[in-house]
Design a binder for these strands. Structure first.
Length: 470
RNA sequence: GGCGGCGUAGCCAAGUGGUAAGGCAAGGGACUGCAAAUCCCUGACUCACCGGUUCGAAUCCGGUCGCCGCCUCCA
């Protein structure tokens, strides 16, 4: 399949380096607050990529997502709230995992915490210092960007061009304003670890380098995150990782476009942002995923209630076909028939168009279009086919579920099967049918209404009455 | 100042050289006791604008206008 690689600025053919084992590192949250609707995009996008790799490519994905649990923002929050950094980290780490579940995001293979790998980071920094890529100033250690030839290759920046209009924090400590912190000395009361440079804590970029190597080994295929991480975060990771080894850190760098609200950048200071948990309180996970995946992942996405509403209607249309067909076929005794066989044969077309779309830099928008067309074709077939050709619909349902899997659609809300339920519903539907034939509509409607209160939906179709659980 | 993205029907949005997917909304029709669902029909002589290349461009090149992001913590 093809993926756009930020490092080369090209769409390239992707294959795991080592057979069918694929290592993927996705930058995780800093757990100082609940994650917001912007943070959700990479979670959904790269979860979809992972599911597609596993389901359609047969690759074994090692998915690593770090938890940054030591950082200035955590310390600031601790000072404000009086809670310890550990307490704050625990609360928002829990919140994060709860949200993953709520979004139907597969649990990453590894979710290491930064604080559990400080020793490895110290080792890395020592190595850099020894080789002249880092220097200490009063207990702080900085990376010397001038020493690393490839600095700027990911973001396409030349240091000389950056200085003119950029807002660069002046620091007398640094040899070059772009030198970045590898180790930060601790102020009184701050969380700290012993190190060759005194007590302190690691800088932000170091953890991803250490964790990548530790959990992926040589399977460093894909490193992903939001577009805002290209510079400086990922640029600095590459500098640290490649300065010593001289070999490429990751082969593919993937970046999702950012979210906007009302066409404006989302920002806490402007007040135009929303917590992800608030969205999940209003919309089901399939709707949320459908919304995020209906725009190509590299483009900016404008968040809106209208967009969520449209997604909800659209995803309901897909789901309705599934539940209706499953209801219809609950008691069906049809066969495939000639017409049905022809319909089944036509289904492979949808599957190959879907794969073609997903293979082209994860074009979920086109893939969703294929799903919609599949449902249209199936509904048409439902309307036109006769009883002996009904069984073909099962193939369409199976295909829709298969294609929806990477997108995270239709995994929940499947029709539950129960012999007793079936029997009781058949009885009620038969009774109601007799009432309707006698024009006893009040009673017939009462049955339907009261069943609705119990969560059972009845639909009177040309093929008879079908039922489903909501 | 440097780097980058975007502008496609009322709205959302694929398509990046071969004659405009899909969804939402809207209108008409079919089905129907009602409801729900579904089906059929109606949409851009056109892809911000101007010029060029080409047999052919939304797609390539040049220019103009408008919007946005990164360069500072950030998914």
């Amino acid at each position: 399949m093809k993926l756009y690689n930020t490092l080369t600025r090209q769409t390239e053919t992707f294959q795991p380096q080592d057979g069918n084992i694929l290592g993927m590192y996705v930058c995780g949250p800093t757990v100082y607050d609940h994650i917001h609707i912007g943070n959700v995009r990479p979670l959904i996008v790269f979860d979809t990529l992972r599911r597609y790799f596993e389901g359609f490519k047969g690759w074994n994905v090692i998915h690593v997502q770090n938890i940054t649990d030591i950082d200035d923002k955590l310390i600031n929050k601790s000072i404000e709230s009086g809670e310890t950094v550990e307490e704050i980290a625990r609360v928002y780490t829990d919140s994060f995992f709860e949200l993953l579940k709520g979004l139907g995001v597969l649990q990453p293979t590894h979710t290491p915490k930064a604080t559990e790998h400080v020793a490895g980071m110290i080792e890395l920094i020592q190595g850099l210092e020894k080789a002249g890529f880092a220097y200490e100033q009063d207990g702080d250690v900085y990376f010397r960007v001038d020493r690393f030839e490839g600095y700027g290759k990911l973001s396409g920046r030349r240091l000389d061009d950056q200085e003119a209009g950029a807002r660069i924090e002046a620091s007398s400590q640094k040899e070059n304003p772009f030198d970045f912190t590898l180790w930060k000395s601790a102020k009184p009361g701050e969380p700290k670890w012993d190190s060759p440079w005194g007590e302190g804590r690691p800088g932000w970029h170091t953890e991803c380098v250490v964790l990548s190597h530790q959990y992926l080994g040589n399977h460093r295929d894909i490193h992903a995150g939001g577009h805002d991480l290209v510079f400086p975060h990922h640029e600095n990771e590459i500098a640290q990782a490649e300065a010593l080894s001289g070999e490429p850190f990751f082969r593919f760098w993937l970046h999702n476009g950012l979210l906007s609200l009302g066409g404006q950048k989302m920002s806490k200071s402007l007040g135009n942002f929303d917590y992800a948990k608030n969205v999940l309180a209003k919309y089901d996970p399939e709707t949320v995923r459908y919304f995020y995946l209906s725009r190509h992942y590299r483009k900016p996405l404008d968040y809106s209630e209208e967009g969520l509403q449209a997604a909800q209607t659209a995803v309901t249309r897909l789901r309705t076909m599934l539940t209706d067909v499953e209801s219809e076929l609950r008691t069906a005794t049809g066969t495939y028939g000639n017409v049905g066989s022809a319909f089944v044969a036509s289904l492979s077309e949808f599957r190959s168009r879907y794969i073609e779309a997903m293979d082209e830099d994860l074009n979920t928008v086109a893939a969703i279009g294929v799903l919609q067309e599949l449902v249209s074709a199936t509904n048409r077939y439902r309307a036109e086919s006769t009883a002996e050709d009904r069984m073909a619909l099962l193939d369409a349902v199976a295909l829709l579920k298969e294609l929806g899997e990477p997108l995270g659609l239709f995994s929940t809300g499947a029709v539950r099967e129960s012999g007793l339920e079936d029997g009781l519903m058949t009885l009620l539907i038969e009774l109601r049918k007799q009432l309707r034939e006698k024009k006893e509509f009040t009673l017939a409607d009462q049955i339907r209404d009261q069943l609705a209160d119990l969560g059972v939906t009845l639909k009177d179709t040309a093929q008879g009455t079908i039922w489903s659980l909501s």
